[in-house]
Design a protein around this nucleic acid. Structure first.
Lengths: 144, 144
DNA sequence: TCCAATTAAGACAATGATGTCTTATATTAG
DNA sequence: CTAATATAAGACATCATTGTCTTAATTGGA
């Protein structure tokens, strides 16, 4: 079981790829598809979602592509994952019980909610700006 | 995206259900299926896996059922989830990159591995004994 | 104007997880 | 021995995710 969906993985990698480029650059999906090793059409659909969600913006036609819709330091990984996979990242009960919460907790509720809060905080404070920076500085990779 | 599979959820809930019963009791799958609101045949398959994995033991025929194969304080939630979902709980790269690790890390590797370690530790130190205890003491629930 | 490049949109296929059903086998009680 | 009660095993159906393909719409440049 992966922690986030393939779609989110692809969305994050593409967003980081764009963030690594000069501000305002429109990057074509074809280029990202090649460089990141992701199916072109599948990536297109994911980026469309992020565009409709207001995190990215697109331009059709020659010299078109995808760009960040906002400054890179205002887009968090949480923004992206929630936009792709739907809100509340790991919101649900870890045992799958409906209505699990402080009022009617499952046996794992308090233990898990502590961890979940940490993960969410991590995703929230990781911005494209910060990660793109670290990625460049340490020469990290976005593809296999 | 759930954190563990439905199969693991069901396996955990059933194991906790058994752990709440007197030591050595064989609990029928039919009873658990009803009380936990889980499909009988599906639950059967999951419990078979746990039985083959040596965490539970089964007895066929009248008065048969499923029991813990070891003392409840020697079975952790990690044991169960790994037996059902496969090893390395959240082992993979969060961005899905193959070969991601300290040698060739992805941009999120170090940030995520810190969290992953904590989660794994939590799952490892949570035993059926301890959780069944807390569950009884605080009258927690295993079903909707 | 026309062509090439590019995203938009949606139909469709492949895959894996989840859930259902049927038959076989083992165990206990009478 | 027989009947009732259980698990074992595996075929099959359903569903969501992932991936592919085709057609339409838009843009910039020759």
């Amino acid at each position: 079981m992966a922690i986030i969906s393939k779609s989110s993985e692809y969305g994050l990698r593409a967003a980081l790829y764009i963030a690594a480029r000069p501000v305002g650059d429109y990057v074509s999906i074809g280029e990202m598809s090649q460089k990141l090793g992701i199916s072109f059409h599948f990536l297109t659909k994911i980026l469309q979602k992020l565009t409709q969600g207001g995190l990215l913006k697109s331009r059709r036609g020659a010299k078109g592509g995808i760009a960040l819709a906002k400054p890179a330091d205002t887009i968090s990984l949480l923004d992206i994952v929630e936009n792709v996979d739907g809100a509340d990242l790991f919101g649900g009960c870890i045992l799958g019980l409906v209505g699990c919460g402080v009022k009617r907790p499952c046996p794992l509720h308090q233990h898990w909610s502590r961890e979940r809060t940490r993960i969410e905080a991590m995703f929230r404070k990781m911005t494209l700006q910060r990660l793109a920076c670290e990625t460049a500085r340490n020469q990290l990779r976005l593809a296999d």
